[in-house]
């Protein structure tokens, strides 16, 4: 890792529930993320996997400051973001964008897609007039859409095209870092490879770093240089991708990898590795230990 870090998250905490009001006081406190630390280098792709409800999306929103963490630190190129006020944060928002799972609901149905892609450029007063139109046309070309589509409405596009429109908007301000939260899950299988290839092309062209949140582990293996595995609000293992697939150390990671369906009928009877999540919730104070260079595992006693 010779590249400097674009993002550093340290000891992030975020809990929900447990209010002080009359109706909330009996609500249990849920620690959505419970002491999560990682960093992402410039131009790198870090994969974030784990069970649903493990806090993956909460992390994505917390690092972008869309949702303030209760405590912990998020640094973008060395600048601490958690202490900034919204106006102070605005210039940093240009460099950090998000792509969502559902390309349908992310778009505004009444806005022409050209205006939708142009919006961040207008809000941040980057371009106007004919330069704005030219830039939007260029963005359409970059994501593989015909610029003549700019004056159309979202309903005229297929799922894959809509995700391309969302991506065009996300890269409009030349960000350094994008959180992609299950960006291909809702797409047809024959479209997924197109969008993944686009992600890689954009990374090569623009030097983008991604936090790629996903539950398709074979796609994560393909796309990410490192993988973090989450369980109940904690990262239980973090390692270079091939390292984690070759030598998973945490029992939950082992169980997860053994559960991936393999598209080969001759290998259908592979042994599973059971793991009881309810009995093995990662403790808050357990440290991460480095078992080989860059390979970290939560030091947790397993029942």
């Amino acid at each position: 890792m010779t590249q400097p870090n674009v993002l550093e998250a340290k000891n992030l905490m975020r809990s929900f529930g447990g209010g002080t009001g009359f109706f909330d006081r009996n609500k249990p406190v849920i620690h959505a993320i419970n002491g999560v630390s990682f960093e992402i280098a410039e131009g790198e792709t870090l994969g974030l996997v784990g069970e649903s409800g493990s806090g993956k999306s909460t992390i994505g929103r917390a690092v972008l400051q869309l949702e303030k963490p209760d405590s912990g630190s998020v640094k973008f190129r060395g600048t601490e973001l958690t202490t900034l006020s919204p106006p102070q944060l605005k210039p940093y928002r240009k460099h950090m964008q998000m792509i969502f799972q559902d390309p349908y609901s992310a778009l505004n149905p009444r806005m022409k897609v050209g205006n939708f892609v142009a919006e961040p450029l207008v809000v941040h007063q980057v371009e106007s007039g004919s330069a704005l139109t030219d830039r939007v046309a260029e963005l359409f070309q970059t994501v593989g859409l015909d610029p003549s589509f700019m004056s159309r409405y979202p309903h005229e596009f297929s799922g894959g095209q809509r995700q391309r429109i969302n991506i065009a908007r996300a890269i409009a301000l030349n960000p350094a870092f994008i959180v992609a939260d299950e960006p291909i899950t809702a797409l047809d299988v024959s479209i997924q490879a197109q969008i993944v290839n686009l992600f890689q092309d954009l990374q090569d062209q623009l030097g983008l770093a991604y936090l790629f949140i996903a539950h398709d582990l074979s796609m994560v293996r393909y796309l990410c240089s490192r993988v973090a595995v989450m369980l109940r609000g904690r990262i239980v293992e973090l390692a270079p991708t091939e390292q984690i697939f070759a030598d998973p150390r945490h029992p939950y990671t082992q169980s997860l990898l053994a559960a991936i369906p393999v598209p080969d009928p001759d290998r259908k009877h592979r042994p599973r590795i059971p793991f009881n999540v309810a009995r093995n919730i990662p403790p808050r104070d357990a440290p991460m230990i480095e078992v080989s260079p860059g390979h970290y595992v939560l030091d947790q006693e397993i029942q």
């Binding site: 894959g160 024959s190 197109q194 993944v196 890689q200 796609m219 393909y222």
Partner: peptide, 27 residues
């Protein structure tokens, strides 16, 4: 179509080439 679906899976070959085989166009 079957061939394209199988070939576009992110397997070892795709990792080596750093490129997924893609079916172009839309359904």
């Amino acid at each position: 179509y079957t061939h394209g679906l199988l070939k576009s899976l992110p397997d070892e070959g795709a990792r080596a080439q750093r490129r997924l085989y893609q079916i172009n166009g839309s359904p």
